[in-house]
Each structure stands twice: as C-alpha cells, then as structure tokens.
C-alpha cells in the first residue's frame, strides 16, 4: 500500500509521518508515533477515550484519518503537563480521586480542558453536557464532575500568575 507523507504539529512540535489513508489519527498516534496516551475504547466515536484537540476543537481521533491532519495543530494528553508540572485539571483529577482504572482519564482531561478554555466558569450542568461524549464505567462521573469544578479556580489563578 502506498503511504502518504503528512506534516502536522503535535503538542507544539512540527512532525511528519508516513501513513496509509485507511489509518486513523488514533492508530498513527499510538502505533506509529508512540503516543499511546490516547486510548481506544470503541473505535467508532461513542466513548471519547481517544479525544484529542485538533485545531482548537475536541475530536475523537478514531474518527479522523491521519492523512486529514496535514497542516493541523493537534494536542494530545502527552502535551498537557509540562515536565513534572501538572495542568490544574490533572492535579484536580488526582486530588478528587476522579479516576479508578484510568483508561478514560486522558479523554476526559482533553475534553474538560477544551471546555474550561472556552468557559472557565462552567457549572455542573454545563460540564455534564460537555463531557457526555466521554464514557466512564468506574466512577459514576460524580468525582469527575467535581474535579472539573475544583480545577476552575486553580486554572484561573494559574492564568493570572
């Protein structure tokens, strides 16, 4: 199969890779580029475990072809923390015990991050609406929603400083 060359920007770095047109962004991230933080839960857009931010919007990377990302700006869970300095959402997920098995966590953090960048004061109803494309089977969502709420003031503080 002929492979296409794709140039894109991943977590702030310009990269290029070769892929087949039938390979999804998720597949290329995980199997070709070694970025395994985005998870495959359903591979058909129904669980959100593979959520990444593409050109400022959250997408299911299983429902994006890698060839489509030519010239795109992509952020994955691997690009959220800076070294040992965690993003306030990541810290909140830890402190609020918002993960059990953790497989859905990267997707939830990417979705929540995109939400709080648009709506820094999102309330519970808004958070639940925005995160409804991300399935979690362990937590019952209670502590996830609380973690996002508790990250809001930290995030604003971090922005101001």
């Amino acid at each position: 199969m002929r492979r296409s060359q794709v140039q894109t920007r991943l977590n702030g770095n310009d990269i290029d890779f070769l892929c087949e047109p039938r390979q999804s962004l998720l597949e290329v991230l995980r199997d070709e580029l070694g970025f395994t933080g985005s998870k495959e839960g359903c591979n058909n857009g129904n669980c959100g475990a593979c959520t990444v931010i593409m050109n400022g919007r959250i997408v299911n990377s299983c429902c994006v072809l890698a060839v489509e990302t030519e010239g795109a700006e992509i952020q994955t869970i691997e690009g959220v923390a800076h070294g040992e300095k965690l993003h306030p959402l990541q810290q909140a997920f830890l402190e609020e015990a918002a993960l059990q098995c953790g497989i859905c966590t990267p997707g939830f953090i990417m979705s929540a991050k995109a939400l709080l960048e648009r709506e820094p004061n999102a309330d519970e109803a808004r958070i639940r609406h925005w995160l409804a494309g991300n399935l979690c089977r362990c937590t019952g969502y209670d502590k996830i929603v609380k973690a996002v709420l508790s990250a809001e003031p930290q995030l604003q503080e971090a922005k101001q400083s």
Binding site: G48, M54, I58, V59, V64, S111, G133
Partner: peptide, 9 residues
C-alpha cells in the same frame, strides 16, 4: 447530533 467531539467534525 452526537457529543461535542462529533459536533466538531
């Protein structure tokens, strides 16, 4: 239509 991820696309 779908969740936010779907609506992005």
């Amino acid at each position: 239509i779908g969740g936010i991820q779907i609506q992005s696309r």
